[in-house]
């Protein structure tokens, strides 16, 4: 088991947002998490990534059998957890390539592998940038500064491609993308999936799942997974809406 979440309760500023959540993820799987706005999807992602402002009040999270909650956010990242941000952050004055090289080399150091100098890294970067059709002027520009919404999301996937995580959590990477950008991002993700990694795909719409095939779909409402199923569940959800699912899952 790559990730095991047991009875997770978590929140912020004393307010509980995740209220008893269970989820198991194995290598090679894609899990989609869907849910209405405010249901706690981003909170779950940030708790997994270790955002310091979120507090876990109950339950446990095991990652590769280790207690994830004891690890600092940067440690988690170096151990292979990657989160694509719903709202990527701007870092003025720091070039995208400088930032990516630092992140890449931190990971290499952690793995005891060789770090790359700027010239070597540039080659790698150019290669990976093709995956999300990013041009080299993006790599020279400051991290996310002045990027359009779609460019920011592509930049997130580029980072995923560079860092090759074992567990990628994509938080609404599809929202705000036009159809072409969505296709580029989805193709990028599909090329990055393999039998050794897993993806948690947080989304609001079923649309993305036409491009990336999930193995499981979970519906999150009010901090709990109220229904799990396969791809068909997403289609049902799209047709009938969250209220129907909520009403029906209350019986079971």
């Amino acid at each position: 088991m790559l990730l095991e979440i047991r009875n997770l309760h978590a929140g912020i500023d004393g307010r509980e947002i995740i209220k008893g959540l269970n989820l198991s993820v194995e290598k090679g799987q894609i899990h989609a998490i869907m849910g209405p706005n405010g249901s706690g999807k981003s909170t779950l992602a940030k708790v997994l990534a270790g955002h310091p402002n979120y507090e876990v009040t109950e339950g446990e999270i095991l990652y590769e059998g280790k207690n994830l909650l004891e690890m600092e956010p940067d440690e988690r990242a170096r151990e292979g957890i990657f989160m694509a941000f719903q709202y990527p952050v701007e870092i003025p004055g720091v070039s995208n390539s400088q930032f990516l090289r630092l992140a890449y080399n931190e990971k290499m150091k952690h793995l005891g592998r060789e770090e790359l100098d700027p010239i070597e890294f540039n080659e790698l970067l150019k290669e990976k940038a093709k995956l999300v059709q990013m041009t080299s002027d993006f790599l020279k520009r400051s991290v996310n500064e002045g990027f359009s919404g779609g460019e920011k999301k592509r930049n997130e996937i580029l980072q995923m491609a560079i860092l090759e995580p074992k567990l990628a959590i994509l938080d609404e990477t599809d929202s705000g993308l036009d159809i072409d950008a969505l296709r580029i991002v989805a193709e990028g993700v599909n090329k990055l999936r393999n039998s050794e990694n897993a993806i948690i795909l947080i989304t609001h719409y079923q649309r993305l799942l036409n491009y990336i095939q999930p193995d499981f779909v979970h519906i999150l409402a009010d901090g709990k997974i109220i229904k799990s199923g396969t791809k068909e569940l997403a289609i049902e959800l799209e047709e009938k809406g969250y209220d129907w699912i909520k009403a029906n899952s209350a019986h079971c």
Partner: peptide, 18 residues
């Protein structure tokens, strides 16, 4: 900003420096 950089494996101190 700090969390974003840390999430990419950069230590907090290096993140501040960056």
């Amino acid at each position: 900003q700090l969390f974003y950089l840390q999430q990419r494996g950069i230590s907090q101190e290096d993140a501040v420096s960056l």
